[in-house]
Design a binder for these strands. Structure first.
Lengths: 155, 155
DNA sequence: CATCAATTGGATCATGATGTACGGATCTGC
DNA sequence: GCAGATCCGTACATCATGATCCAATTGATG
């Protein structure tokens, strides 16, 4: 549905929103969200370039949310790290005779439209789930969490 | 939204539905749908393996739809060529403490669900657009179609 | 100055998308 | 039935890109 990178970005942002106030280091975020830290570093940088997070070097540094979690949408986060999930405006075949989209591309655009509307109206704050279910997917503690065995296709 | 490969597969199937009855060669399909023929060949293979199209070698051969266009969904076609766009059933982080999905993954799954429902209930026949707009994106003739200039990022 | 943590650049690996080329099947004309 | 023209089937080779890791560098803090 969305790229791995977008997933990672969303997890990171949600994590930061959860720890809003204190700076979180790349390693801390990586551990909590189960994202490879080396890659997360680049994802966080993209988020920083987009102005969604602020970074602070040195002791006590790390990342913090740059904007209020009630004002940032899922779509904002996705757009910061991936290319923009565009609507289909013109016939992808480039046929000028088609002033309207053919049924296929109308249907495909409809899906893009729905996803855009859904993700575009969902704030990060909506994903924190106060009380009901645990905030992100980081359980009680951040270390020693029991993992379910994930099957690789190589086996 | 969907992969290039899925797009190609859908175009090909729609083209075949439009020419239902007569066999269409890979080259004919490629020309009409603006898909690289070399690649299309493999896409058609996958469709054949999935039982969606039938192939016939030799003179006068080509591909035909194996099932009625009113009984095949967009999702069937997509599933034949791409890995299956799965619902999110369990926490992707593998946390066993999460019996329910966290808000993020519930939202993401919701999108998958919608797309699945939309594509799963749209038949190929629905994409032919009898009369209103041109069938697929192949305009009046299949050759000498005026193309809109498509900009490459390399320029 | 020593330590900590982000920043950056490059190396690697898998995979999707594409082109090429050859072999096997099938039909047509004789 | 034989020859040759078609047309699918498949195996490689290539290229771009997403995802990943690692090491060196820069900047902040005490």
């Amino acid at each position: 549905m969305i790229s791995q990178t977008s997933e990672y970005a969303l997890r990171a942002v949600i994590h930061l929103a959860h720890y809003s106030g204190s700076a979180r280091t790349t390693q801390q975020i990586a551990d909590a969200t189960r994202v490879p830290s080396g890659y997360l570093s680049k994802v966080l940088q993209a988020l920083a370039r987009a102005g969604l997070v602020r970074s602070q070097r040195g002791l006590g540094g790390g990342f913090t949310l740059a904007r209020n979690e009630a004002e940032v949408t899922m779509l904002d986060v996705i757009r910061a790290v991936d290319q923009p999930l565009e609507r289909i405006n013109a016939c992808p075949l480039g046929l000028v005779t088609h002033t309207e989209l053919c049924p296929l591309h109308r249907k495909l655009d409809e899906a893009v439209e729905w996803v855009e509307a859904s993700f575009g109206s969902t704030m990060i704050a909506d994903l924190l789930g106060k009380g009901e279910v645990e905030p992100l997917c980081d359980a009680s503690t951040e270390k020693d969490v029991t993992l379910r065995v994930t099957r690789n296709k190589s086996e």
